[in-house]
Structure formats: structure tokens, C-alpha cells
Amino acid sequence: MKAFTYERANTPAAAVKALAARPDTKFIAGGTNLLDLMKLQIETPEHLVDINRLGLDKIEPTPEGGLRIGALVRNTDLAADSRIRRDYAVLSRALLSGASAQLRNKATTAGNLLQRTRCPYFYDTTKPCNKRDPGSGCAAIGGFTRNLAIMGTSEACIATHPSDMAVAMRVLDAVIETVAPDGTTRAIPIAEFHRLPGNTPHIETTLGPNEMITAVTLPPPLGGLHIYRKVRDRSSYAFAVVSVAAVMQKNGRNRFAFGGLAHKPWRVEEAEKKETAAAVAEAVLAGAHTTPQNAFKTLLITRVLTSIFAQAAA
């Protein structure tokens, strides 16, 4: 790990001021992604601002009838909240399918949204990677692509976003609340939060360099049947190969979001009007860029959707 200095912020305003005060500063929340990457010198901040004691760890009702989740709410606490379990079960299920209990006890809502890719070449500092080292090239293209993206890819990067939680938040149309050092706040719909790689895969979200996530709000409950289906290489403690978050309604107004397909949680709202699994899959996967190693993901998505439709009909 490279040397860094450390400070603990006590209020959100002080935290964003500290972030803006010097270059190469990063927030540390649960630390489960940042410290992992710092040990590998993939992340090399010179200063860390600890935001664990800002009091942003509450889940509160909104006037609209939804919930406002503090940025520092731990993944365990979010999954276990009785309102989330009852009204947003897809989110509970997605969280519980991720990482391990120990990691979920530390991992935070904001940190989870901002976790970085698991592309093997991003982790391998001996290989070129436009995300880790802009302009150096992409070792994944033409390399081992089994776990990489098939939707929204670019010539510069074919990495996926690894979060399970974010996929459920996408299906629920969550909104990310932020604050900047001058006190300005923003509300960013999750659809606009994560970016596609384009020519700048190192810029992963629309969060400003000195902005802090303060909360994530969920709109009022949708009702319906909530399902999160994660397909992975072992049955626990593994990232998704593909995953589907679904909210199935009797009136056919279903919603689907997908993990393991793209640089962001993938959702094609037009496709949700289709009435069969095959038709939804076809519309969602239109324009897919597959390789012989990851083309199986298209069939896998169709099959997972088939099982979700069957479960909803049962």
C-alpha cells in the first residue's frame, strides 16, 4: 500500500470540504473495495477521509411514501430492514446474494454502488487496461472474456459492473442524492448514474469529483412478486455471471434489470411490454456484442427469464 494520511470527518459538509481540499483524496466507507485495491496499488490515494461517523446510517420514510436510505447504511442492515424485506424484497434478495456476511456487515450503500469492476485484467497490473491506466489499451479484448460484458461495450473497455444491489435498485428506479462542497445537492436517477465505458472507461459514474453520496431514495412500493435470480460459478460467495432482478405484476407491467451484461445495471424498458421470456430476452439483448467465450450469456438470460415467468405464473 502507498503511504497516505488519514482524517475522520464528523459532518457531511466537513467531509466534502476535506475531499475538495487536496488532490488525490478519497472517501473511505466500509473499505471493502477501496482497501482491496489500495493493497494492489490499483488505487493510490494520498489522503483518506473516513465518512463512517457522519450519522448517514438511517433508513427513513419519505413524504412520497418511499424510503430514504443513508449512504452509510450497511448492506446487512439494508437487507434486514423489515420495510425493505416486505416492500422491496428484490433489493433484500440482491444484497443477500452478494459477497459474504462479514463483507456485508461492513459494505455500505454508497460504496456498493461505487465498487469497481472485477475484470481480471483490471486487477492484473502487468496488463494494459484503459480503466486503470487510461490510454494503455485493453487486455480483455481478445483475451479471456467469459465474465465480461456483452451490452453497451466499446472499443476501449468491455468490463461489467459487479454489484448485485445496483441491479435491484435499477429495477426499483432508485435515486441517488449527493452534496457538493458548495452545499449544492443533486438527485440523480440510477439510470443516469452509472456510465457506459465509451472512450473514458475510467469515468464510471456521473458523480462529480468532489461530490458525496448522502442517500439513496426508493420510490413508493411497486407491489407484485419480487425476484432476484443470480447465476454464478458456485452457489455462494461469488460474483454473478448474469443476474436478473424482476418485479412481476398480474397486469403484465413487469420490470427487469440485468447484472453481468454491461458496464452498468442493464435495463430496456421497451422490452418489458413483451409477454414471453423469449420476446423480452430478444428485445433486451438486441445489439449484443458477444465473443465465443461469453455468447452463452444470451441463452442464459433467456433461460433465467423463462424460469422467472414460470414462477410468476405458478
Partner: peptide, 10 residues
């Protein structure tokens, strides 16, 4: 928790 992924100062 995993004590390897947490800083003592935190």
C-alpha cells in the same frame, strides 16, 4: 467482519 479489509485507525 474481515479485519484484513479495515484500517485500525477506523
Amino acid at each position: 467482519i474481515n479485519s484484513c479489509l479495515s484500517l485500525a485507525v477506523m
